[in-house]
Amino acid sequence: MSIALETPNAAARPHRLAWLRDMVGRRSGAIGLAIVLAHVVLALVSPWIAPYDPVAQDVTSMLVAPGAEHWLGTDKLGRDVFTRTLLGGREALLITALASIIAMIWGGLLGMMLGLVGGRIDEWVMRVVDALLSIPWILTLLLFVTILGTGTVVLIFILGFSYGLTVIRIARAAALDIVTKDFVLAAQARGHDRWTIVNRELMPNVRDSLAVEAAMNWSWMLLGFSSLSFLGFGVAPPTPDWGLMISDSRGIMATAPWTVVAPMVALASLIIGINLAADALAKALGIDRSQKAPL
């Protein structure tokens, strides 16, 4: 006699990683994820596979055109462009990843709290947030840089703070959407404190919006960070960094275009990759974010 074991019905509850399957199933998601993954892996292993020393100057081979010796040529100080491009995303990826986490945590928590609390506090904090957001983002960054300088820790703080502002709005909107639902009322009626409600009721429900926001936030932050580097307020030379490489070699691109093309392709591909992946993630999670990109 055999008793069929009652297995939990897999179809009834979506698999925990169903969103990933959906994402990879979309062309944009597959391409985007592949690009982002390639960038992350390269950033991790590049110190071991880079053919040259990224900061070693070589006066005997300055501005060498791409060839067998130097695949992507050399820059005006004789440094290998391929090596520098390989390594040029490490600082940017690390700093923006950490700053994104900070932005998501403080922005997400504050936003959810505001949505939950409502009333006067909510109104005034949102006024301040709106006021801050009416300063062009690059000027917010520049203002902080003028006061605090451009150390790595400082940059992480500046980016984490500035980009958390948009997260507040998203998290608040998502929380407001949920706060009137019956299960939140029930939790309040049971006498749970706010923290428990955020943790148990709100969090699981705004998680999807926040996940998409995190992905988008990361791409904006990369753009912001590279812009700072490009303007000379990001990574300090001679550390290889794409934004810095582009601005360094801008003056000589008429004669040595290879010095700017490689870092441009690297940076653009990473940002496009994240955007494609974020877009597919939004679709996979069923979040509508038609025309949502800050200028």
């Binding site: 590279s226 812009s227 490009f230 582009i246 601005s247 691109m253 441009m264």
Partner: peptide
């Protein structure tokens, strides 16, 4: 999507 300093540099190039 592409950073503005990238597209601007491409235009100049």
């Amino acid at each position: 999507t592409i950073p503005d300093f990238v597209s601007a540099t491409v235009l100049i190039l």
